[in-house]
Amino acid sequence: MTTIVPETSSFDQRVLHPLPDQLLATVGDLHDEGFLTAVDVTAVDYLTHPGRTDLPADVCPERFEVVVSLHAHQRHERVRLRVQVPADDPVVPSLFDLYPGTEAMEREVFDLFGISFDGHPDMTRILLPEEWEGHPLRKDVDTGRIPVQFREAPVQR
């Protein structure tokens, strides 16, 4: 592997922690090693849980984290990449060129977290209506509970 990235293990699964600008090189190396499928792309907003302990010492925790799961079917191996994304510049390079299957997943992350992927062919909302404002899975966005009113409900005493 040409790029050196910090590595940890979580429940017997290999976890790599590349920086956003290391991501493409790391993923390129893994693709050459036989990780031909990007199983999952998702993100986590660590706004209300900043002091997480499962990061290696030389990785600076940021608010957002993009989590990419790669899978090498032939080698029966999985690897997870956790990319720290700063809140003031939430941009990650897109994996679309290597893994066309990440198209919808990256759009989903963009839609729900507001993290955009540089180089993605169609960075638009996928699940929510196009005119929607905000990114609901961010921790500073409320769940949106609406008190359900029943008609002819008894008046509160």
């Binding site: 979580s10 429940f11 699964q13 199983v39 999952d40 986590v44 997480r52 499962d54 799961s69 997870r80």
Partner: peptide
């Protein structure tokens, strides 16, 4: 306990 996990 704190942590993260992926199960398929």
């Amino acid at each position: 306990p704190e942590g993260e996990v992926y199960v398929a």
